[in-house]
Every structure is written in structure tokens, then in C-alpha cells.
Design a protein around this nucleic acid. Sequence first.
DNA 1: CGCCTTGTAATACAACCGTTCAACAAGGAA
DNA 2: TTCCTTGTTGAACGGTTGTATTACAAGGCG
Lengths: 233, 233
Amino acid sequence: MAKTPGTPKFRREPPVARREALIEATLVCLRRFGHEGMSVRQISAQAGVSAGLINHHFPSITTLVAAAYDSLATSLLHSIRRQAHDVSKTPRERLRRFFEASFAPDLLDPGLFNTWLVFWSMVSHDAEMRAVHDRTYGAYRATLESLLGQLRLDDDIPAFKLRPAAIGLSALMDGLWIEASMNSRTFKPAAAVSLCEDWTNALCAGAFPGLRAGGRASALQRPKPPQKTQSES
Amino acid sequence: MAKTPGTPKFRREPPVARREALIEATLVCLRRFGHEGMSVRQISAQAGVSAGLINHHFPSITTLVAAAYDSLATSLLHSIRRQAHDVSKTPRERLRRFFEASFAPDLLDPGLFNTWLVFWSMVSHDAEMRAVHDRTYGAYRATLESLLGQLRLDDDIPAFKLRPAAIGLSALMDGLWIEASMNSRTFKPAAAVSLCEDWTNALCAGAFPGLRAGGRASALQRPKPPQKTQSES
DNA sequence: CGCCTTGTAATACAACCGTTCAACAAGGAA
DNA sequence: TTCCTTGTTGAACGGTTGTATTACAAGGCG
């Protein structure tokens, strides 16, 4: 008698489901409020749970943010790659679709940019964030290298160095994405795609001497070996 | 008698000098501690004054940060432009020096990158920061347009659209600067200069159809006017 | 039905935040 | 030397932060 449990005050969830929900809430808060959204109370409110629950599933707030970084970066790369992957198309067409997916409206959302800024600002201060960054950025550049490598097989394209080419292309894309995210009136998304395609076509036309393979224009080589200080063409 | 003023407890400064000192202290804190350095107490401690003094010279902390943004952006642009300006050199050589100055060690400091991230993260939330960003970024791109314009006069270079070209080049430079700032082991500064020079040379060789003037490939035109679809230059 | 594990809530805590304000003193002016 | 302007201090305020800890209750198991 008088038990009247009515509606339970909370629902128990399996740890993995709750963790994913917290990660999702973190992404929502970062997108909406930027750096100020990275707070235990904001995130827990967004997830509809108490503040203390976060420290029960994650040792600290930065670990949760690192998990959110990993989740978002992986998700975005997979999404873009899925849209670009079409075996019935030519490598050049696949690359074009990769560009178009990268500058689609949902990727140019200012909220997404603010989220990314929070991640970047933590990379140099937090070891976990640095690890996630190195891994996800490596995967991103590897995808670019793969697409450029397929391109290189076709036609009579002069050989170019894959890794430096991917670095240059990803830099161009990043710079365009940033400016478009900060001020959408500077240029239209189609302009960014056009600039990327032009860059790729120029690469295939051999217009970038510093990227030609086999040559001595090796300023772009991996910095790892002992640096023989040779001329850069 | 018994006055013994000894060392005065503080020194009065003219308002402009004190404001400049506070701006300098702000830049030091942002460089060192990133987003956590943007605090009244940290900045005032760095400047060697009390916390309350900041609100006496600036209506709020964000106004101080906006002033610091303006100061740093203007200072850096002037410095780079000074190194590139040499009337005895060819336009192409001036552009090369602009690249080299942009990827010099003091510009690739991770602390500078963290400072910039703080500024960027505030642009979408604060009107003052947005105003500073639009103004300084406009000045930066105008410098790039000027250098590219001088280049265009020489030789028999096919005409290209100045503004979209400056947008593309600044995007490439920004992307390279960001990656170099986040992970200095990815590539050497000379590689960034090489990629920028290659891009410029390809532009002058007419390798970028989307940037050619007069063509109908006008995806890069200004979005502002009522779109008469005419070519610029 | 009752126990027991454990996911969850709620509170407490010390430290920090930006801003306000009254009191002080530095240093030029008269 | 005295006064007065005003740059400057330092405490106070209400708010926030991340984390630790305690008490609770949901829901499976015996």
C-alpha cells in the first residue's frame, strides 16, 4: 500500500549505451555553445541525467571530449568516404564527389566549426586529444592518398609524390572549409569544389614541380631521415 | 616624519600606455595558456597590476581580447608585408618572400596557433570579435590580391580573377599553417613554401580554369551584387 | 517475495570566474 | 606646501566550474 511507484525517477542503461548518449550530448553542447558547452552541467542537462553521472562513466571531462572528438571525426570521414565511393565512376569522379561531400551544407555548419575549434584548442594541452588528432588526421590523409593514388594509375599522368600531394590538398581543403565556416558570404561551396578540382587537375598535368616524383625537388620529403640539405630545385 | 614613503605601491601610467601593456599581457597569457589564459586574474597578474584595473580601462574582458586580436593581426600582417616589400625584386620574388615570412619559425609557434584558436572561437559569439576578424582578414586578402596583381602585369600571363585567386591562395596558406602549427613533424616549412610557389606558378601558367578571367566558369564570383554574371578584371 | 548489485541522483566542496565599488595614494597643479 | 584629480588597489558579490562522496532505487536473480 502507498507504494505508488508511478513513473520511475530514472532508467538504468547499459554502460555502453549511456556512454554513447553522453558523447552525443557532448557534441550537441559543443556545437551549440562552443567552448562554454564543454561543461559537466551543460552536458548532463542535455543528456537528461545528473552531473555526477559523467564522472561515473568517464574519469574526467576531457576524456569524454576526447571520445566525442574520436566519434565525430570517424563518423564524418566515413560519411564523406561513403559518398565518394562508387566503383562505377572514374577515380576523378570519385575525387570530385569527395570534394562535394566535404563542402556540403551540413559540413559547413558554423556549429561544426566551433566544435572543431574546441577540439583543436585542446590538442596541444591534452595527451588524449593529441592522440585522437594524430590518428584521425592520419586516417583522413590516408583516404586522400588513396584517392590520389587511384587517380595516378589512369591515363598518362606524370608520377607525383603521394604523401606531399595529399598534404597540400588537405591543407587547401581545410583552409577553404575554415573560411567558409567563419564567413559563408566570402564564397559559395561550388567555388571551393572548383578550386580543389583545379588543384587536382593541375597536379595531374604536372604543373607542380615540387611534387614530381623521382626529381630532386625534395623539399617535401618526409622530415624523418637525417636531412642532407640538398637543393630544392 | 614617519612618512617614509620608500617605494611607492604602484606607478601611475597614462591610459594609452597602460592599455597597451594590458594588451601585451593578454597576448602572453593566450600564447601560454590558450583559452584558460583569457582570465582577468591571469592577465592582470601577468601585467603586474590588480584585477580591477582591467575593468577600469576596458568595459569587459572580451573588449580587451578583441583589442589584442586587432593588435596581433595588424602587427603580423605589417611584419610579413615589410619583409616581402622590396622594390628591387620582381613581383614573383616578392611573393616568394611573403611565403617564406609566413612560414618562418616565429609564425609556426604552437603558442601563436593557440592564441589564434581563442580568437576564432569567439568570432561567432561576439560582435566585436567578428568585426575585428572581418577587417583584418580583409586586409590580409587585400595584400594577397595586391601581390598577385603585380604578378599579373608581368610577362604574358593569362588573365585570372584576382579575388578568387587570393581566396584560394590564402586558404592554401592557412591550411598549411594550421597543420604545421599542430604537428611540426608532418612537413618542413620549406615544403609549405614550395607548395605555395607551385600553386602560384600553376596559376600563372593558366592551369586553373576556374580562375581564368572572362570565362563562364564563374562559380567563384562575388556573391554580393545582384549577380550580373560579368567577369571581373 | 526479498535481497543485492550497481547505475544514478543529489549534495558538498574548494577553487575559480567577471564585475562592482569604496577607499586609497600618486603625482601634477596651484 | 596643500589640494585635487584620477589611476589604482583589494575586498566583496553572486555565479560558475570539476570532482568526490553519500544515499538512494531500479531491476535482475534467487
